[in-house]
Design a protein around this nucleic acid. Structure first.
Length: 854
RNA sequence: GCCCCUGUGGCGGAAUUGGUAGACGCGCGGGAUUCAAAAUCCCGUUCCCUUACGGGAGUGUCGGUUCGAUUCCGACCGGGGGCACCA
């Protein structure tokens, strides 16, 4: 018997599907709709195993839903704008567009080889003017609805390359290319008012019950809603107001200083004639801006010499410091500090020798001896040293303080968010141009919609540092859309997260004149199952949720949430290898010696195996999907990425694992070919009279259908794979007598149907081998016949004092007392009860009997 | 620093969510087939004691709740992730 030729067979069926447009979606179908989407890829050049895993997961869902009668939308596109294309342009002198479209062509070919059930007719790239022109339209819509504004904002500035750097391009405070010290600069930039939706984005999380809890929690923390008190201090020396926000108004009598951000207006004003202070503020700005950097940095301050009056005692003066841990973006950019109740404040107070007054007494502590050492106390407790709040629980004190401030009129209850508005300006070429014009007379004016898209100029140079749009000779010179006078185009382009915030809408009606057709979008959205990496848990998913709300707000859709179900898959890992020179070695070059040591096949150097890590080019622990498909076929690769690990966890890629998967594809092929000729014709009914072994097999068939169906519904693909292995063993078992041939056919056909979402090419080939003229991709998902999924008897463990001593097989519906009698009758059990007295017998029907004796 | 996740044989992982721990796969050992190999098939495989029959221990560590804990609670130890211009 010939072996299964995966390569030829897979190409054959891919052509059949493509020619027949098997996976084309009818947007206006009457069938129940199901939208399954994997996060679209960045066209980096070649697909990697992470892509194979991601798109295979989605493909199983898509094919499974199709088989269950849904009209499935499963599209593919390209997240095609972004920095790597510009880097390639600089390094290799290729145009970003050429580089990107070449990469797309490559990756499209690669993806098609894996045999995904995708409607390729809907494909687009976000760098198509056709796409980003619509995005510009939406941006102008948002502008007209007051969701877009401009403000000054800080950027990382590379003074040598004359360019704005992304955080990842700043390494130890230096520009990644120039090595120059990075400066912070203020630029006028475009923002989207995501904060308008902060409460709604938070509330919406509660409705997303098919999202991982982890992702919802991350978003919740990101939005960071807090309730507190906002009030004005009075600056003692000047009488000015200094607004502060605090989430701990209960600790106000523990206040020992006031801290303001280095970007605070008061600080800026004071620094005008204080060079030392200005230098300190510069130093604050030079530090990292990430939360981590701020939290880890040493707490430093600069005494302004000014004071504020305590709100409850005008004679009580608190010094005002400029501090490096206070952010201008959060709250009012000014805080009062209670060192006893906040670690940062405490570190600061110790450093500058400021008072530390405990105000919250932990339970079990005596007020008399209680002091704060090196650790602030942030937990619950009773108020002390706090006048009218003394004795209250700290939470009650917080409410009482806010109430008092409000009734006395000097402060107000305030909800604050950590979430900041979304800065979408990028000073780069390869992105969606922001469709605005700067006119001396009319100000900032949107481009007229009939003039969209504002296309990127093609003749650009990356020789000069900085934004190519900025120094293009003609592109930015235009006429004002409003008054017609000479004017200048905006040269900022949009954050690529804009592009990925609505692509899932465009897929529904990819040829629409408008960005999308609302009617169809309202029918198809939200996406029923969205699948992608957890690295997008916050930004992409939050921006997409915001964008969807914004579109709803401007009247373009009826939907609020874009993704009903979310699944975040794990990474693909592989062992790392290093040779004796300390160079990383590709796994394909590593060979085994008899004694278990490793060497390089190309130069014979000794190799040691290192840690298991995420596949990455830098460590060379990568396996190229093309090589795997070439060697084993796409089905084997698909089968392997589905097996072994739960999809939400990391997958360990191993040579032996992929070989195991390959053996199974061969096994299925062999099982069908060896047996097909002896089977009754396709469509033969299974008789009701069955021999014992035939009945046994039929039960396995229907139990398996039931199990696999539930596994796939719950995305437990690794369990489905394990169950199919078990099932294959059952189908291979001998069965003879009445009905055995008919059951064998049913069993084999079921096997093929069940693997068809996972190994579609093999399934197609075997379906034909079993005598079918139709495509298995068009076949219905098998239905379990309930009567064959249940057994009349059940095996139960019998424990004595919690230890299993025997198992009994009893009728499924046997009453408890009878089960107990059977259990007690067991010789083995009797031996263990011995002369002990039976105190209690617990019978859990169908599960266990536990006899407690002593 | 803060927040979150995770820990089960030699390995990846199952365990109907409080009810027989180790399904299934990989690896390993033994056997069959073969002139031989590849491929394939069968048997065994948590650890310790025992020829066997059996018995004991066991889900990172230490406690707790329970008739019963991989599962729930507390503390600790190890590994991983996120923290605003990478996408």
């Amino acid at each position: 018997m010939s072996r299964y030729n995966a390569k030829a067979t897979e190409a054959k069926w891919q052509k059949v599907w493509a020619d027949a447009k098997t996976f084309k979606t009818d947007t206006n179908s009457d069938k129940q709709k199901y939208y399954v989407l994997e996060m679209f890829p960045y066209p980096s050049g070649r697909i990697h195993m992470g892509h194979v895993r991601n798109y295979t997961l989605g493909d199983v869902v898509a094919r499974y839903r199709r088989a269950n009668g849904f009209e499935v939308l499963h599209p593919m596109g390209w997240d095609a704008f972004g920095m790597p294309a510009e880097n390639a342009a600089m390094e290799r002198k290729v145009h970003p567009a050429d580089w990107t479209y070449d990469n797309i062509a490559n990756m499209r070919d690669q993806l098609k080889q894996v045999g995904f059930a995708i409607d390729w007719d809907r494909e687009f790239a976000t760098c198509d003017a056709e796409y980003y022109g619509k995005e510009q339209q939406l941006f102008i819509d948002f502008f007209k609805n007051d969701l877009v504004y401009r403000k000054e904002s800080w950027v990382n500035w590379d003074p040598v390359d004359n360019t704005v750097l992304a955080n990842e391009q700043v390494i130890d405070g230096k520009g990644w290319r120039s090595g120059a010290d990075v400066e912070r600069r203020k630029l006028s930039q475009w923002f989207l008012k995501i904060t308008d939706f902060a409460d709604d984005l938070l509330d919406g999380l509660k409705t997303l019950d098919r999202w991982p809890d982890k992702v919802r929690l991350m978003q919740e923390n990101w939005i960071g809603r807090s309730e507190g008190l906002k009030f004005d201090f009075t600056v003692d020396e000047t009488g000015e107001k200094l607004p502060v926000y605090t989430t701990r108004p209960d600790t106000i009598f523990g206040a020992s200083f006031c801290a303001i951000s280095a970007d605070h207006p008061l600080a800026l004003k004071l620094a005008e004639d204080n060079a030392e202070m200005a230098a300190f503020m510069e130093e604050c700005r030079a530090g990292g801006t990430t939360e981590e950097a701020i939290e880890k940095a040493e707490k430093k301050g600069f005494n302004t010499g000014l004071h504020v009056q305590h709100p409850f005692d005008p004679e009580w003066k608190l010094p005002i410091y400029i501090a490096n841990f206070v952010l201008m973006d959060y709250g009012t950019g000014a805080i009062f500090a209670c060192p006893a109740g906040d670690q940062r404040d405490l570190d600061f107070a110790r450093k500058y020798d400021l008072p530390v007054i405990p105000v919250v007494l932990p339970e079990g502590e005596e007020e008399a001896g209680f002091t704060i050492g090196d650790e602030a106390y942030t937990g619950p407790g009773k108020m002390i040293n706090s006048r009218f709040m003394d004795g209250m629980a700290h939470t009650d004190a917080k409410a009482a303080m806010i109430d008092r401030a409000e009734s006395e009129g000097w402060g107000e209850r305030t909800v604050n968010f950590r979430l900041r508005d979304w800065g979408v300006s990028r000073q780069r070429y390869w992105g969606t141009p922001i469709p605005f014009v700067h006119c001396d007379d009319c100000g900032v004016v949107p481009v007229n919609s009939e003039d969209l898209p504002v296309k990127l100029p093609e003749d650009v140079s990356f020789e000069k540092p900085g934004n190519p749009l900025e120094h293009h000779p003609t592109w930015k010179h235009t006429k004002c859309p409003s008054c017609g006078k000479d004017a200048v185009r905006e040269t900022d382009t949009m954050d690529t997260f804009m592009d990925s915030s609505w692509y899932f809408l465009r897929f529904v009606t990819p040829d629409a004149e408008a960005p999308f057709e609302a009617g169809a979008v309202n029918e198809w959205l939200p996406v029923n199952q969205y699948i992608g990496g957890v690295e997008h848990a916050i930004l992409h998913l939050l921006y997409a949720r915001f964008f969807t709300r914004a579109l709803n707000h401007v009247g373009r859709t009826d939907i609020k949430e874009p993704f009903e179900g979310l699944f975040t898959q794990g990474m693909v890992n592989h062992a790392t290898y290093k040779d004796t020179n300390g160079d990383w070695v590709f796994p394909e070059l590593v060979r085994n010696r008899e004694d278990g040591t490793l060497f390089r096949s190309d130069n014979g150097l000794e190799v040691t195996e290192g840690r298991i890590e995420k596949m990455s080019k830098s460590k060379k622990n990568v396996v190229d999907p093309d090589d795997i498909i070439d060697q084993y076929g796409a089905d084997t690769a698909r089968w392997f990425v589905l097996s072994d690990s739960p999809p939400e966890r990391d997958l360990l890629w191993t040579e032996s694992g992929i070989e195991g998967a390959w053996r199974f594809t061969q096994r299925v092929h062999r099982m069908v070919l060896e047996t097909a000729k002896d089977l009754p014709a396709a469509g033969t009914a299974v008789p009701t009279d069955l021999s014992d072994s035939a009945l046994q097999m039929r039960k396995a068939v229907h139990k398996t259908i039931k199990g696999i169906t539930s596994d796939i519904e719950n995305l437990h693909f690794n369990k489905a794979v394990a169950r199919i292995y078990e099932y294959a063993n059952a189908v291979s078992a001998k069965s003879e007598g009445a009905g055995s041939a008919e059951v064998k056919r049913e069993a084999l056909e079921t096997l093929i149907l069940l693997i068809s979402p996972m190994m579609p090419h093999l399934a197609e080939e075997m379906w034909k081998e079993l005598g079918h003229d139709s495509l298995v991709s068009e076949a219905n998902w098998p239905k379990a016949i309930e009567e064959f999924t249940v057994d009349n008897t059940v095996k139960m463990a019998v424990q004595v004092n919690g230890k299993v001593r025997d198992t009994i097989e009893v009728a499924k519906d046997m009453p408890k007392d009878e089960v107990e009698a059977v259990a007690l009758a067991s010789e083995k059990v009797k031996n263990f009860i011995d002369d002990k007295t039976i105190r209690k017998v617990i019978v859990v029907p169908g599960r266990i009997v536990n006899i407690v004796a002593n």
